[in-house]
Deep mutational scan, measured.
Amino acid sequence: MFYPNSPQTSPQLTQIPYGQQYAMMQRQIQQPYHPFATTEPQARLYPYHYQGPIQQEQGGFITQQSTAASPQYVQMRVTPVDQSIMSGYPNQTANGSSSSSFNYNIHPQQQQQQQQQQQQLRHHAMPVGSVPLQDDRYRKQLIVNYLAPDVTSTDLHELFSRFGELDGARIIYDKQTNMSKGYGFVYFCHAEDAKEAVERMSGYEFHGKWLKVGYSTNPLNIVPSNSSPYVHAGSRGAAG
């Protein structure tokens, strides 16, 4: 039997160049792979992502010199942007860049009308829970959420009447099932009393439920100042 490094198959040491006398086997001759043993700084910083320098080929596509990437890492192929796409944008300079302001050559009167329309939209648009300043009635009506099913309009009136005089209180019921929808409205005579009720009743436990109280901004629920107070009856038909 002959071994790869046996004296019968191995040459004389004098015939082997210096430095390879003890590297006779194939696994010894093959050098191990060192990912950080390279002179390129990109490979030292990113050993798993770097795959060699990027070269520009004919046709405008950018390719990489090395083989496919590892399945664990996804390499994105980048193509140059066609400058003709950006030619339609206004205020574009000769080098292809555009300024931040756009001039669509709008007539001054049209621009003024658009600004007025935007101001009107901001004036009428009102986020949930906010209180408008032009109508004091919005500051007097509250919406009470997360009410228990057994709470009546009379219970709601008695709960909030300790903060001040009320114009009314009612629970909203479903017309088909005649069941409470879980929320109601309270109408105060003074805005200061309503503000105190919002601050003190939010998070209050009532009939096993934690109440959420806020201003009601729905104009359909506003009680006119010259109208008669609501009837605080315990029956659902009268309260709904």
Rank of each mutant, 00 (worst) to 15 (best):
Q30R: 14
Y22I: 04
D150V: 15
L142M: 03
T93M: 13
E158T: 06
P35E: 10
D150T: 14
R139T: 08
S228H: 13
D136N: 06
M179F: 15
A239I: 05
S228E: 04
T14S: 09
M201I: 12
L45T: 13
Q75P: 08
K175N: 14
P80H: 12
G208T: 02
Q8W: 01
P229A: 10
P224C: 06
V198C: 08
H157T: 14
H232M: 12
N178S: 14
G19L: 04
F2R: 15
S84H: 05
P132D: 12
P90I: 12
Q117Y: 13
A94D: 06
Q65Y: 05
L133W: 12
Q20E: 04
P149T: 10
Q31P: 06
Q120A: 11
Y230D: 03
N91T: 09
P4W: 02
Q120K: 14
D136S: 08
V231L: 14
S99G: 09
C189T: 14
P127G: 11
T217Q: 02
T38V: 13
Q42E: 05
V144R: 01
N226W: 07
G234N: 05
Q15N: 10
T177F: 15
G234S: 09
A23L: 03
Q65K: 14
D136G: 04
Y33R: 15
P149R: 14
S225M: 09
P32H: 07
Y104G: 05
I29Y: 04
L45G: 13
I106P: 07
Q64V: 03
G214V: 01
I143G: 01
Q55W: 02
R200W: 15
S10V: 06
R236T: 05
N226P: 04
Q111K: 11
H123I: 07
A238N: 04
T79Q: 06
P17K: 14
P132F: 08
V198E: 05
A233F: 15
Q20Y: 04
Y46S: 14
Q72L: 03
H34D: 07
T152C: 09
T14E: 05
T63M: 03
P41E: 04
N91M: 08
H157M: 14
Y50G: 15
P53E: 11
N226M: 08
Y230C: 09
N105H: 08
Y48E: 11
Q51P: 13
S235Q: 08
W210D: 01
V78M: 14
I171F: 00
Q58D: 09
W210G: 02
Q92F: 07
S130N: 08
L45K: 15
S130C: 12
K140Q: 08
D150P: 11
H207W: 15
Q51Y: 04
R122G: 05
R170C: 01
Y89W: 07
Q21I: 03
A69N: 07
Q21G: 08
N91A: 07
Q56D: 15
Q118K: 13
E165T: 14
Q119I: 07
N178Q: 02
D150R: 15
E205F: 15
A197E: 01
Q141I: 00
V186K: 01
V81T: 11
F163M: 02
A169C: 08
I16E: 14
M179P: 00
P127T: 10
F61W: 03
M179K: 05
H232C: 11
P108A: 10
R200V: 10
D150F: 15
P32I: 06
G60P: 10
Q134I: 11
D174M: 03
R139C: 08
A125M: 11
P108C: 11
E40C: 05
H124C: 11
A94K: 14
L121G: 06
Q113V: 10
R170T: 02
V78G: 15
G59P: 09
F206N: 01
P229W: 06
S6N: 10
R77N: 03
V213R: 01
T9H: 09
S100M: 03
Q113G: 07
P71W: 02
Q58N: 10
T154G: 06
Q31H: 08
I222Q: 02
H232Y: 13
Y73V: 12
D193E: 11
Q30D: 15
T63S: 11
I29P: 14
S84E: 09
R122I: 08
A169E: 04
H157A: 06
I85R: 15
H34W: 07
G164V: 01
Y146R: 02
D174S: 06
H232L: 12
N105F: 05
Q42D: 08
I85D: 05
M179E: 04
G184M: 01
T63I: 03
G164S: 00
E158A: 12
K140E: 02
Q51G: 11
Y138M: 02
H157L: 15
N95Y: 08
T152F: 03
T177W: 14
Q20D: 08
D155W: 02
R170H: 15
F36L: 07
A191R: 12
D193C: 13
M86C: 05
T177P: 00
Y215D: 00
A69Y: 11
E192K: 13
Q112M: 09
S101P: 12
F163H: 03
Y73N: 15
P80Q: 13
N218C: 02
R162C: 14
D150C: 13
S153P: 02
T79W: 03
H232Q: 06
